[in-house]
Design a protein around this nucleic acid. Structure first.
Lengths: 207, 207
DNA sequence: GTCTATAGACGGATAGAC
DNA sequence: GTCTATCCGTCTATAGAC
């Protein structure tokens, strides 16, 4: 991001990178549907036709913009390797670090924003991103509790991400990573390894 | 919903209600941007022009579809009146009940999905919905901790809502209200009244 | 009340000149 | 490589007939 996001394309025409940067920004801010090729082109200072020339269709551009700098298969073992104890803290630290970095965070914001805008059916979110962290997580949990524990943990991390990076709540968005981890980790850890909740027999169906 | 969502408009032409029901459904599933007047009209079995005739512009239709059956000023005191103790459980019970009911839930799904798809700037979500529950909540908390405690609680509730009603994770979406409350309430309650997290002095900025 | 016809704007995609 | 010109589709919205 250091050499291409700054200013207009200097001398060496890194037009392709310029387009990618503008696309990432727009996809992250507006999602797929509200991003237009024309707007991306204008922001990058090039002609709309160039984008098709380089990337093909709008979908192709979106996929190209999702290319990310981290390989999940490398980071996942570091989080879950040491065991369930402290896993929440390690997981949250990694997640926040990845999302705080614009290079890796912007594509993820674009992915989440686009997925939430579309139908629940074919979302990249569940089949792609979440599955990546779910599968190894579930493998560490008792089989009959794995689904519930992992999904409850997911709700907390998803809500954190949405509030901090999509809606940009303050002061949450400006808090340090370590403070956020200190607040949230106990909740996530309880979902992973805390006691199962005891259900009251009386369930009031209506309100 | 019982008399108008079922089948085509019977004899008495409740066309207006039919349109509203279709609009709510589409706004909830696709958000504002991806909802088209034409599709709503087709789903309601009427002509697109009729929608303009009844409701005016697309924005007007959206606002009409957001009309909801619950008055927050009535339910809020019931949740926060008894005090901070057990507030999380009461709050979650109400939230889940409102969202589980299609009559009140669909407009809320539409609101959240649309807000998340748009820019962070002018979102109805923060200025409308969340503010409604935030203000009375913050009034019960120590002034210097109110923002943080309320926002951390908001992340959990937001993530729960997104996962259960927008993304429809399973088994989460099919779990009973009381089971969800049993899982999540302790987390929310800790944000509201638990001990403040202790921050380590050493903050590793990188990674 | 309900529908037909159409205006007017916008965006994706392509062909082809330079 | 980069841009001009343009086609085609989709959508909102309106005017007006029945």
């Amino acid at each position: 991001m250091s050499d291409r996001a700054r200013g207009r394309r200097a001398g060496g025409p890194d037009t392709r990178g310029q387009i990618l940067a503008s696309a990432r920004s727009s996809f992250a801010r507006k999602g797929f549907g509200r991003t237009t090729i024309r707007a991306v082109a204008a922001d990058a200072g090039v002609d709309p036709a160039l984008i098709h020339h380089y990337f093909g269709t709008k979908d192709d551009l979106f996929l190209a913009a999702l290319e990310i700098g981290v390989d999940p298969r490398e980071v996942v073992p570091r989080v879950f390797g040491p065991g369930l104890d402290g896993a929440a803290e390690r997981l949250l630290s990694v997640i926040l670090a990845v999302w705080d970095d614009p290079q890796t965070g912007l594509p993820l914001v674009a992915l989440v924003r686009t997925s939430l805008g579309a139908d629940a059916a074919h979302n990249l979110l569940h089949d792609g991103l979440i599955r990546l962290v779910f599968t190894p997580l579930q493998a560490m949990l008792p089989a009959d509790e794995a689904d519930r524990r992992a999904q409850m943990a997911a709700t907390q991390m998803l809500g954190l991400v949405v509030a901090r990076y999509l809606l940009r709540f303050e002061p949450l968005a400006s808090m340090s990573r370590s403070e956020v981890v200190a607040w949230v980790a106990p909740s996530v850890q309880r979902y992973l390894s805390g006691p199962l909740p005891t259900l009251d027999e009386e369930q009031r169906p209506g309100e």
